[in-house]
Design a protein around this nucleic acid. Structure first.
Length: 280
DNA sequence: CTCCAGGCGCCTT
DNA sequence: AAGGCGCATGGA
């Protein structure tokens, strides 16, 4: 059990940054670095149940970013009305610190897909290509996220059979690039964010948006600001309600307005737009 | 039925 | 530099 304040576990796990958390029994089942875990939360703490005895929970607390000072992050936001409304409506929403390969592969599969569909594709991919993992017996079987080497050995047809459509060759080529050492995902941690982004967008199927998702959700570069259709809607509606702003204008605004934790602000705007503000 | 979804790559201007 | 289009698949 981990004491936490101001942590909305459900919003965090289901806000479209990770795709493998399933709500069960008032909590969530998921897999972190090949370890099955059941999480539940109350007002003051998060409780974890693993399949096997755990002596060091660092993998979990790091993933959940339990030690992060959220108040300090929120204080760094600009004090304008839209971001205040988003923060107020999504109190306790956090950013996870995910595995780079799983995050990269998942977001390659995300383009022009709804979150529910991304979850479905990733689920089938893990069942077919991931390693079976020990899980608590009363729950569904668990699988690890397939390694780059395993997916590199798959055929494009096998991947297409997971319903990923035209994204299959992108995932396959990227898995091969990682396996063959064309890109070193661990080394990106040590690079400046611009250099890490430059490396990521070399991969097929990885443009600016998906690269920024990986930089933000896996590597913790909190200045990375993924601009997708929802964020464009949010920026347009909340910050430029009168005139239509070009994509370039919105991008420039996103890079200059939100400060050092812009990526965190982005997640609030994204979640606010999707859940609370969506029908406007 | 049509429209569009946490885009990207490639082709025109 | 900026904009248009096709790409699979399946909900709404």
């Amino acid at each position: 059990m981990f004491p936490v304040r101001d942590y909305d576990l459900g919003a965090t796990l289901e806000s479209g940054q990770a795709f493998r958390w399933n709500p069960v029994d008032g909590g969530w089942n998921g897999v972190i670095h090949d370890r099955w875990v059941h999480l539940r939360a109350d007002e003051f703490s998060i409780t974890a149940e693993a399949a096997q005895p755990v002596s060091d929970w660092n993998w979990l607390t790091h993933y959940l970013q339990i030690q992060l000072n959220l108040a300090a992050v929120v204080t760094s936001f600009p004090s304008d009305e839209p971001i205040r409304a988003a923060v107020s409506a999504c109190r306790g929403l956090r950013l996870l610190r995910q595995d780079p390969w799983e995050c990269l592969a998942s977001f390659i599969l995300s383009s022009t897909k709804q979150i529910v569909q991304i979850r479905q594709i990733v689920s089938v991919l893990c069942e077919r290509f991931g390693e079976p993992l020990p899980a608590a017996p009363q729950y569904a079987p668990a699988f690890g996220f397939p390694s780059p080497a395993r997916l590199a050995r798959a055929s494009e047809a096998e991947l297409r059979a997971c319903k990923m459509g035209f994204r299959a060759p992108y995932l396959l080529e990227t898995a091969r690039s990682v396996t063959e050492g064309f890109i070193d995902l661990e080394r990106l941690r040590e690079l400046p964010v611009e250099d890490a982004r430059h490396e990521l967008v070399k991969l097929p199927g990885v443009g600016r948006k998906i690269a920024d998702c990986v930089l933000l959700f896996a590597y913790g570069f909190q200045s990375a600001f993924p601009v997708d259709v929802w964020v464009i809607k949010a920026l347009q509606k909340l910050y430029f309600p009168r005139r239509r702003a070009s994509a370039k204008r919105l991008r420039h605004f996103s890079e200059t307005h939100f400060g050092p934790n812009a990526g965190y602000a982005q997640q609030y705007l994204f979640h606010y737009m999707r859940t609370k503000h969506g029908k406007l």
